[in-house]
Design a protein around this nucleic acid. Sequence first.
DNA 1: TCTCCTCGAGATCT
DNA 2: CTCGAGGAGA
Length: 333
Amino acid sequence: METPRRDKGKSIIEALDEYVVIDIETTGLDSRYDRIIEVAAIKYKDGVEAGRFSELVKPSSYNILFEEDLKDETDYLFNGKDYIQYVDSFITELTGITNQMLKDARDEEEVLSDFYGFVGSNSILVGYNVNFDVNFLYDELFEIGIQLKNDYVDVMRIARRVKPSLEHHRQRDLAEVYGISNDNAHRAENDCVVCNQIYCRLIDEINNSGSSFDDFKKTYSKSHSGIDIKSITSSKTAFDTTHPLYGKSVVFTGTLERMPRKEALQIVADLGGIPTDSVTKNTNYLVLGNNDYCKTIKDGKSSKQKKAEALILKGADLQILSESVFYDMIESE
DNA sequence: TCTCCTCGAGATCT
DNA sequence: CTCGAGGAGA
């Protein structure tokens, strides 16, 4: 069971003059199972670098290999008892980071604590598909008692809008388009430098296009669903931690009878729950409103409900509630 | 037109 | 996750 990322910062579109570019390398793509192996952050102020942090990370967990798994191309360590592996050969190939390098690195608690100290709690983070990095960092910082709340600018999001004709919008593609050298790709510090150059070039391009960056921002402003889920936060600081909705991720489907969805989401937040708008493995409750009006739903079940039912079959910690049960829950405070 | 809600398709991070 | 397209209702 996982806990939702409470109070995680939100994705914003901004042309900042003060920010921190971040990048991490990890043992894989899945923040539930993989670990951070390198972190980097570079501060910029008014177009000038104002500090740099870059360090390898020794993960808190590793694989133990059996004798028969010791292939020539596999990079492993022998600690006197077991053959251990932080990273597999794919990651070593991709990043150039070896098990030997990680063995000599500081523990993740120390590095991440220093990293957060460098970045600060009020800075705005900039990165490429930076939600990936923020999720890993949120989870690993949370383990050492730090909550990462910084808002972040995803350069990839801007790149897609500025260069819609490009076939791909990977960091390396944008680097190529702008003629930015990318020799040390997939080392965190290098990727920060490259990401920053792409960010600056994109901003230049927007400002030179005849309209302002504010105009550019407006093309995002009308939120897609009508509800900006991240803007729903609780004004309270203390919660009843025994309330059934406390710490739970809640999703609504359909139209509620008694109140607009936005109001219901606000109530969830005020009870210490986490308002969410899509069903994932992290979802704890799905509240069913009325879907009668919606012709696209043929068999009476929304896609959210179907997804939730599938997750429940797989043993997820998720309950489907009727609207009235939801009202009972919020009134039993 | 604006608000609130839906589905489906398509990328990127290591 | 993000975005585009579209229904329903006021």
